[in-house]
Nucleic acid binder design. Sequence first.
DNA 1: TTTTAATACATCGTACACGATGTAAAATAT
DNA 2: ATATTTTACATCGTGTACGATGTATTAAAA
Lengths: 145, 145
Amino acid sequence: MAYEQLKLQNQLCFRLYTASRLIIQAYAPFFKELGITYPQYLVLLVLWEKDNRVISEITEQIGLETNTLTPLLQRMEKMGLIVRCKGQVDTRQRIIALTKEGKKLEEKAKEIPSCMLDTILDDDLKLSDLTAIAPQLDNIITHLK
Amino acid sequence: MAYEQLKLQNQLCFRLYTASRLIIQAYAPFFKELGITYPQYLVLLVLWEKDNRVISEITEQIGLETNTLTPLLQRMEKMGLIVRCKGQVDTRQRIIALTKEGKKLEEKAKEIPSCMLDTILDDDLKLSDLTAIAPQLDNIITHLK
DNA sequence: TTTTAATACATCGTACACGATGTAAAATAT
DNA sequence: ATATTTTACATCGTGTACGATGTATTAAAA
C-alpha cells in the first residue's frame, strides 16, 4: 500500500503548481494578442508602475534571478518593448526603460485582468474565494523568501 | 498614474506562480539528495501509487502533455528509475514501469512531505491555513481544466 | 474491405527557470 | 594608494513547459 503522504492529491505544492500553470494558460490568448509571454507581462507590470528601473529592482519585485531575467530582457529589447541602458553613475547597472511601443501596450493590457476574472469566476468560484486565499499565499511567500 | 488592476501585487496569478516556485525551491535540497527534479518526483508519486501506467494516464493525472512528459520519461529511463515498454495490445502505447531503483526511492521519499511541512510551518502559518486553501485551488483547477 | 478519421506518442523550436560560474566595476579594508 | 571583497549583471548548461507538427497504429465510416 502506498504511503498516504506520498499521494499526488495530498500535495499542496502540486495544487499550486497546477493552478499556476492553468491560469497562465488561460492568460495565453490575451498575451498572444500582445505578442508577449507571462514573465514578460510581469516585467511590463513592474515598468508600467514605475519606469526606468535597475535590474536588481526588477529581480527583487518579481523574484526571478538575473540568470532568468537577463535573457528575457534581451528578448524584450529585441522586440522593441524596452531599452537596456548602461547606468551613468554605476556602470555595472542596467537601466531598463519602456519604449513608446512598450508604453502603448499598457492601454491594451488594462482590460486583461477583468477579462481573466470573467473567464475564471462562476457560481462555484466567487471573487471572494480568490481574494480569500491571497493572504495565505502571501504568508507562504513571505516565509519562504 | 498606473491602472490599479495592473499592479503586480494585485495579481492572484503572480502569487500562485511565486508560491509554486518558492515551494519547489524549498523541496530542492530533498530532491537533490535523491538525484531527481520536481516534475520527476510527480511522475514517481503517480507510479508509486500504481505502477505500470500508460503515458496517457500519467499526462491525465499530472496535467502535463506528452511533449513535456516524453523527454522527461526518457531522462528518467536513462537514469535507471523507470522502463518504457511498448504496449503489447496497442503498440502505440508505452507502459511506464518502475525499476528496482525507482521503487527503492519511495522509502527515502516518504519523509519528504513532513520535512517540508516542518520547513514551511510556524506560528504565523498553520497546517490548517494550508489545508484551507486546497478546496479553492481545486476549484480553480477544476474550472480551468 | 478500403478509405478516413481518431488516438497515442514523439519530435522540434522557443522561452523560461535555475544552479553554477564568470567579469567588470564599485566599495571596503589594510 | 593598493589589495580585497562585494556588488551587479552576464553567460553557460540542463531541464522543464508548451504550441505546432509528425508518425504509426487503431478505430470507425463508407
